[in-house]
Design a binder for these strands. Structure first.
Lengths: 178, 178
DNA sequence: TGACAATAATTGCCCAGACAATTAATATTT
DNA sequence: AAATATTAATTGTCTGGGCAATTATTGTCA
């Protein structure tokens, strides 16, 4: 569905060879046309919208909701697991947890089996906040998609996932080429 | 093209009334489906790709390319103008310029007409770097769009712009409601 | 077993952005 | 003209990420 339904594809030398494009050209480059620029603006707008809807003191911030949610659904319990699950630096996660702990939303408990690891537990307030997360986020994202049809939404997600796939493929090559 | 070509639109009470949607639901919320989450990952991947292609010491970072470019094309000359053009906080811009100046890419010149304002001038190195910007950015973004058709690219940009329009409409209401 | 490698968490040092307060200079208003 | 508002730039303080080093602990292997 993503690639093979289009003519004049090059020899397809590898497994997932993608047709190169030249939509952007240096001579005519415009920031407003840039998907990176557009996404940057969208993200900061979404973040702001989320935080104006979680305004109680002690509420998590926009970057904090993902770790909180992953903890709540049991997708991760240690710092390293959480960092991996959120695709975040371990050091950044340590400090994010410092802030969550300072807000009384979680607790660090040193593991007894492996004394290197720290298990993270949500407090009562943390669980309460984590339960709100999907409500706030789904509402905010729905608001930003006002006027979209379901097909358009699916298409958008598909495009974003394809870009991510490209990014991962590039990162994988990255070291060898260039 | 964006809104009026779909049936069962509500009475359209205002000028730009958009049909509300409920694609995301709290009960079934998944982070991987979230456009915010996807965009966050894409942005950090793009930023990383850009910076691995501008690796000479003294090169601008990904967040620095926009101010540099705006300066180069003459879209802004003062700190405040630049901050507005990049939709960035003035304080953040001051410090970003500190770093650009430390790299020898730009220079601050106090205005003589209005002694409050500081005019920013690119140095020779700054101009050279600014000229590279569109090449690097268009290459990186093209790479991330590998496999896209031109129509898909146009559609993607249209979706992003519609989301941004929604964000601005929400922010405009923001104060009154809620 | 003892040296060495791998892993977990933390810390320091960067860059980055938001918000609030401050200072200096210019506009406006009475 | 004097008081007041507005604007430009800066600074302080906070959250947030990335990268590199460090420390403690656990695994591995000769």
């Amino acid at each position: 569905m993503s690639d093979a339904d289009n003519p004049q594809v090059p020899p397809a030398s590898g497994d997932t060879e993608r047709r190169p494009v030249d939509f952007y050209r240096a001579e005519t480059y415009k920031a407003e046309e840039s998907i990176g620029y557009l996404m940057r603006r969208i993200l900061s707008a979404v973040a702001q919208a989320v935080e104006t809807r979680m305004c109680e003191p002690g509420s998590p911030t926009f970057p904090q909701w993902l770790p909180l949610y992953k903890l709540h659904v049991g997708a991760a319990t240690t710092v390293a697991e959480l960092a991996r699950a959120c695709e975040l630096d371990a050091g950044a996660m340590t400090r994010l947890l410092d802030r969550l702990e300072a807000k009384g939303l979680c607790r660090r408990v040193r593991s007894l089996e492996d004394r290197r690891v720290v298990n993270i537990e949500l407090t009562e307030e943390g669980r309460a906040a984590a339960q709100e997360v999907p409500y706030v986020l789904s509402r905010v994202q729905n608001e930003h998609l006002a006027g979209f049809t379901r097909e358009e939404w699916e298409q958008l997600k598909g495009y974003l996932r394809r870009i991510l796939d490209n990014a991962q493929a590039l990162a994988a090559r990255g070291d060898k080429n260039d």
